[in-house]
Simulated assay, not measured.
Amino acid sequence: MLPMKCFSRLNCNLISRRIISLSCPVCHTHSNQTLPQIFTGQMDRFNGITIDSSSEKLVDKDYFSRKLDESLAKWTEEQRRCIWFKVNIKDSMQVPILAQVSVILKDDYVMMFKWLPLDCEPNLPPASHTNLGVGGLVFNNKDQLLAVSEKNYTYGHWKLPGGYVERGEDIIDAAVREIKEETGVDAAFQSLITFRHVHDMMFGNSDIYVLLMMTALSEKISKSEREVQECKWMNIEEYVNHPNVSEFNRLVVHKALKYKSKNLKMEFKKRTFKWPTFVRVINFLNVEI
């Protein structure tokens, strides 16, 4: 049994081979036919498109395949970025076609299950129901903090550098990586500040975002041209009073300053723990006063 919803990510850079076949009448079995119009979809602020199969009128596999070819060719020409397909259970025949040109979110496979007991409901957590991200509040020795303004936003903002934690990556390592990627600044971990937990985020998932206090090891900025519109060192007072800084980020800065004044440090410890049948390497929170 297929899960009720299946998301497949299509990277337009990976489908050139399939698009080339459109320009070759010999290669394409439907060269003498009128190709269907492209999928409608919903644009997002990252220049991507999400297609919902329940909103598209599709006749059969051949029709879907031809419409996919033309859509991908058009979106590549328009320099779109990530294309998402939300496949309803009734349209499951689309999955093997999409798999030929997509990067599946679970590496190279799709996990499906069939719950057999009839006397109870499945107690399995939904796949990828919570995202994990990390942000870094980076201080230098001039009472300044590192602020970024990202591309693809529809409103003015100054935020803290950060992003998603990758699979198998420790939270601190993710913060160091994201700060370096976005700003070019090297930073070292000092303390956990706080975290936020919100719901109904991307694809309806919950979202946990961890905020860390970091110390700058370098100050020269080399911003990511792909992600960042502007990046600079800002005086702390300027940042907390700036109209384009969110209320939550102001709270984060105030908490960090309070922790520093009281010499309070919340750090992560990593240890190996043993159980009767397995061993785990665990990161856990440790508070030093």
Results as ranks from 00 to 15, higher is better:
C6W: 05
L10W: 00
S16Y: 00
S16Q: 02
R18L: 03
I20Y: 14
S21E: 06
C27A: 15
T29Y: 02
T29K: 07
N32W: 09
Q37A: 04
M43T: 12
M43Q: 12
R45T: 11
F46V: 04
N47A: 01
G48P: 10
I49D: 06
I49V: 15
T50C: 13
T50Q: 15
I51D: 12
D52I: 07
D52T: 08
D52Y: 15
D52P: 00
S53M: 11
S53A: 11
K57N: 03
L58R: 08
L58K: 09
F64T: 03
R66Q: 15
L68H: 09
D69F: 09
E70V: 08
S71Y: 01
L72M: 15
W75N: 01
T76P: 00
E77Y: 13
Q79V: 00
R81Y: 02
W84F: 15
W84P: 08
K86W: 02
K86M: 10
I89G: 01
I89F: 06
D91S: 04
S92C: 03
M93C: 03
M93P: 00
Q94F: 14
I97T: 08
I97K: 14
A99H: 13
V101A: 11
L105E: 15
L105T: 10
D107Q: 13
V110G: 04
M111I: 14
F113N: 13
K114C: 07
K114R: 08
L116S: 10
P117W: 02
L118G: 14
L118P: 04
E121N: 11
E121F: 07
P125K: 02
P126R: 10
H129Y: 11
L132C: 09
L132W: 05
L132H: 14
V134I: 03
G136C: 07
V138F: 13
F139K: 06
N140I: 01
N141I: 03
N141Y: 05
K142T: 11
K142I: 04
D143K: 04
D143N: 13
E150V: 06
E150F: 12
E150M: 11
Y153F: 14
G156R: 07
G156M: 08
H157K: 10
W158C: 09
W158T: 12
G162K: 02
E166A: 11
G168K: 13
D170Q: 12
I172R: 09
A174H: 08
A175S: 14
E178V: 07
K180T: 06
F189T: 08
Q190P: 00
F195E: 07
V198M: 12
D200N: 06
D200K: 09
M202K: 09
F203P: 03
V210Y: 11
L211V: 13
L212I: 09
I221S: 07
S224C: 08
E225K: 06
C231F: 02
C231T: 12
C231P: 10
K232E: 03
W233Q: 07
M234I: 05
M234A: 13
V240R: 04
N241A: 10
E247P: 03
E247T: 15
F248I: 07
V252D: 05
V252T: 14
V252Q: 04
H254M: 06
Y259L: 09
S261R: 08
S261I: 01
K270W: 06
T272Q: 05
T272W: 00
P276I: 01
V279N: 07
V279Y: 00
R280F: 01
F284W: 10
N286F: 00
V287S: 02
V287W: 00
E288Y: 02
E288K: 05
I289D: 05
